Simulated assay, not measured.
Amino acid sequence: MDLVILDTGCANLKSIKVAIKKLGYNSIITTEPSVILKCKKMFLPGVGTASAVMSILSERKLINIIKNFQKPVLGICLGMQLFCSFSEECYGVKTIGIIKSSVLRLRTKNLPLPHIGWNQIKFQTSHPLFKKIPNNSRFYFVHSYIVPVNKYTLSTTNYGVHFSSVIQKNNFFGVQFHPEKSGEIGSQLLKNFLEM
């Protein structure tokens, strides 16, 4: 199987699978290391808490497999945050550690949390992931924690503060929003990732 969606036990696995299927690709939801190691691209989705997903990854001995994976990986929402080394969530959680950054609680003055709904992404650089996507396009967000703007940031979003909405380090790509819930523009981003 060329495409793997890592089974992190979260609710949006099927919607990602359906979004990929609409683009003409088949994928498998699994935690089986032998299947993961043979795939060409991997999706790391996440909804819920960093501690719950890290427990699943640890229990299934997948942390080092992800860390050492050489082919393209797309982390979605919490999946992107897990690429960092630490999260402030639940008094602190050690995460995968691909990017040396902490995930911080989204601190906005008067705006409600979580940040739910459509918001713009502002490109910091041109990138194949943004092919046929206009700058300042709107994507669908649901989150209370952020990856601060850093040297791996490809786009930023503002919700009281600026934060990373797309990141890349080597073969690891992350999006803070949900492309599978972002209509045609989200579908285009998934297509760009699949065709890279």
Rank of each mutant, 00 (worst) to 15 (best):
Q168H: 03
N171H: 13
I16H: 14
L113P: 05
P112L: 02
K41T: 10
E180A: 03
P148I: 09
N171V: 06
K131I: 03
V73K: 00
L111W: 00
K61G: 08
E59P: 08
I29L: 05
K132C: 08
D7N: 15
K14F: 12
E59M: 13
R138G: 01
V73R: 01
S15L: 13
E89Q: 10
C10E: 08
H162V: 06
N150L: 07
S51T: 12
I116Q: 07
K151D: 03
T157S: 15
S58Q: 15
G75R: 00
L82F: 03
Y159H: 10
M80G: 10
N158Q: 05
G186C: 10
N171A: 08
Y145V: 05
L194G: 11
S164M: 06
I56N: 14
Y152F: 15
K100N: 15
T156Y: 01
L74D: 02
E184T: 15
K40A: 10
I133H: 04
M42P: 09
G92F: 03
K38V: 08
L190H: 00
K100D: 15
G92C: 04
R105T: 07
L129Y: 05
V47H: 10
F123C: 03
H127D: 07
K181G: 10
G160D: 06
L44S: 11
H178K: 08
V161K: 11
T125N: 08
K21Y: 15
G174A: 00
N119A: 07
L74Y: 06
P112M: 05
L190P: 00
K71A: 12
Y145W: 11
K100V: 01
K94L: 07
Y145S: 10
I133F: 02
T30N: 06
V149Y: 02
K151V: 00
L104M: 00
R60E: 11
T125R: 02
V103W: 08
F177I: 11
Y91M: 11
K71D: 12
F83T: 08
I66F: 05
V175W: 01
F163R: 12
G24T: 04
C90F: 02
I121G: 06
